[in-house]
Structures are given as C-alpha cells and as structure tokens.
Design a protein around this nucleic acid. Structure first.
Length: 364
DNA sequence: AACAGTTTCAACCGCTCCTTG
DNA sequence: GCAAGGAGCGGTTGAAACTGT
C-alpha cells in the first residue's frame, strides 16, 4: 500500500503556470508568506494546483532574486568542482550560487555543462562499437551505455582532469579494475573525448591529424599540452584544484575557494535532508570510492541485465564481491598520486561545510 | 516551406527524511 | 517507539524552441 497522495490529483491543474496563477501565488506569499504549509496553500488562495507544484513554482521562479541562464565561467567551475566532489547534490550546489536554483543547475549540468566538459562522446562510442566491435551487440545494449554514463565515471573523468590529468590518462596501471566491457567502453570514451588531455593520452588513429581543442573549443597543440595548457594552468583552474583539495582534504581549515569566491566550510551541517540523526558517524555526502565500487560491483539494474545475457565474468569472480578490488585501486592510486587523498570527498564536507550556505539559500 | 532530429527547461513524480502528535 | 503527513530532493518527462536538411 502506497501512501496517500498529497492532493486530489483529479482536481488539480497540471502543466505550465499562467500569469494569473503566478500573480495569485506571488501576491499571497508576498503578503502572508507560505504559512508553513504548502499543501493547504493552494486552497487558501483558490488555486487548483498541488501544493508541491506551488512550492516548486515559488522556489524556482517566483521568489525574488532568481537568476535564469547566463551562467558565468566561475559558476561553471563551481558547479563542476562540486559535482566532482559530492555528485548530484543539486540543492547543495545551488546553495553556493546565489540566485540559482537546484533545478536550474541540474538542467544546466545535464544539458550543457556536462557536454561542454566531457565532450559528446557517448553516442560516437556506441556507434563505433556497433560498427567495429564484435561485442557490439552487447556493448550497444542500452543498459551498458547507461552504466558507463554513471555519474561516478563522469566524476572520475572530471576529477582526473583536474588532479593529474596527463599521468593518469597515460598510465593504465593506475586505473581501476573494470569489467571488460566497461573498460573497453571507458577506453574508447576517453580516446574519443573532445578533451585535449584525453586526446593527448589516447591519440585516436582516426583523429591523428586533427587539431585538438580545449574544453572551450579553442585550438591547442600537443606541445602546449605537454607544457601545460593555459586553460589548465591559469588561476581559474588553480582555484579549482585548490577547491578540490580543500573539499577532499581532511583539513577543513583549507578555504574552499574558486578564484575570488571563498566558500565557508567552517560551519555546521544543516539539519534536515543532509544531516541524518547519526550524521556524526556517516558521511554527509556520498563517498566517491564506494559509489564507484558499487558501480563496479554492478548491483545496478544496468549490469544485471547484461549478466542475464552473458553470465558471470571471471573478473568479478576474482574480486569475489569483496572490497579488495577497490581497495587496491584506491590505495594504490593514493600512494602514487602526488596530490591529496582526493578520493575521500567526505571529510571536509562531513565535519564542516557548505551547509550553512545551503540553509541560507533556502531560507525565504 | 516543410519536415525531422535535437536541445532546452519547466514541471511532475516518487522517494526519503523530518516533524509532530 | 510508532505512524501520519508535510517538506525537500533528485530523476525523469514532455512540450516548445531551435537547428539542420
């Protein structure tokens, strides 16, 4: 038995809001506030809308000082940086960007920023696999491609770009043990990426004579890449790395900065969605390592579907479903990496954090 | 001009967590 | 401690706008 619906779904209007509805809602909230009860609000003002719909409309469009579109590069960096560190916690990310809503950022990430940073490689990977790879019938399975587009892998890819891109992409021994299909797809995805660093690390035969472009689509040559591409050595990216180190470091005193934007990581987590009752013992944000581990262990539906088709794989037998595989990966990489223990994205956020800003962002 | 394919984004859905009685 | 109901969240959908042919 499911829970009772929050409203009478037969008697509520759905779809786009009219200017009249907007005006009613705005006028009421401006005058009386939400009254702490969104469910009852539409009845009070004679709107045939679900309370949740009113709340969403107010938070995303009607409340004052909302910005739409026109994301700056600084905002891009913040979004990217936080996504790498904490994943799709859009409300937390939104709290760091005044005037932005979680919905807006989520849409912006999914439709633009992700493509801008990771390149449009998924479809080409699938196409190429299906035309050249004997395993194409399996690889092009939608569940497989969905598994590869998992946010954990996106974050891995972005993370490595910022941390130590050349050495990581150039050294397969540093990579995690992937399922053969996953590894194959990851390799092809990386080699086909429009990102110059990946192209440098994995020059594609088809692309060998092509000029390389940076993440902003500007031309860049190999020498520049070896010496350090300006885009990756300017203060903006330095700020990003600094931020990443801060957010992943156990030393929460390191300021979380991005350029001249300094984020407050010294406040207490907000009570509510993020801080659980036993928050002191649990990471507030997902642990990237465990997320990746879950992905690799493929309890997800995506890989289960493949297992139905092709059975169990030796690599997973070897891993024996234990944490060993990922421990090898994380520990080994940590010792080899010159940078911080960047896999643990939890500590800074857990102990202190950006959650006060988050709270402020949602305080009306 | 017409059509198809792609992208964008507002809105909805269903879930989890919190609060309250 | 438990259950009910509300708030808030992330994922997804689908219509509109845009772009390419």
């Amino acid at each position: 038995m499911g829970r009772a619906p929050c409203c009478d779904k037969d008697n509520v209007k759905k779809g786009p809001w009219s200017p009249e509805e907007d005006a009613k809602l705005k006028a009421y909230i401006d005058q009386f506030g939400t009254g702490g009860n969104w469910i009852a609000l539409p009845q009070k003002i004679g709107l045939k809308r679900c309370g949740k719909s009113c709340r969403l409309r107010w938070l995303n469009y009607l409340r004052p000082n909302i910005k739409h579109g026109g994301f700056s590069e600084e905002e891009d960096s913040i979004i990217c940086n936080l996504y790498i560190s904490i994943g799709s916690r859009w409300s937390i990310i939104a709290a760091q960007l005044p005037g932005r809503t979680d919905n807006d950022i989520k849409n912006y990430w999914n439709t633009r920023l992700k493509k801008k940073l990771l390149g449009r490689r998924k479809q080409s990977s699938i196409n190429r696999l299906s035309s050249t790879n004997p395993d194409a019938n399996l690889a092009e399975d939608s569940s497989s491609s969905q598994a590869l587009s998992n946010s954990a892998l996106e974050r891995l890819q972005l993370h490595m770009q910022l941390q130590n891109p050349i050495s990581f992409y150039n050294n397969p021994s540093l990579w995690p043990k992937l399922h053969p299909f996953q590894e194959k797809m990851l390799l092809q995805s990386l080699s086909e990426s429009s990102n110059p660093l990946m192209q440098y690390a994995f020059p594609s035969p088809q692309q060998g004579d092509e000029q390389k472009v940076d993440i902003y689509g500007q031309l860049v040559d190999s020498e520049t890449l070896q010496q350090g591409h300006p885009k990756f050595s300017n203060s903006n990216v330095a700020g990003l790395e600094n931020s990443l180190n801060a957010i992943t470091s156990s030393d929460s005193s390191i300021p979380f900065t991005n350029g001249n934007h300094v984020m407050d990581l010294t406040t207490v987590p907000r009570a509510g969605m993020v801080e659980k009752s036993d928050a002191a013992a649990q990471p507030v944000v997902s642990n990237f390592q465990s997320e990746l581990e879950n992905f690799l262990n493929s309890k997800s539906s995506g890989f289960t579907a493949q297992e139905d088709q092709i059975g169990e794989f030796d690599c997973f037998k070897e891993m024996n479903g234990s944490r060993g595989g990922m421990n090898w990966w994380s520990n080994d990489f940590e010792t080899k990496s010159a940078s911080s223990n960047s896999w643990d994205s939890t500590s800074a956020l857990q102990s202190e954090g950006m959650f006060q800003d988050y709270e402020l962002g949602y305080t009306m």
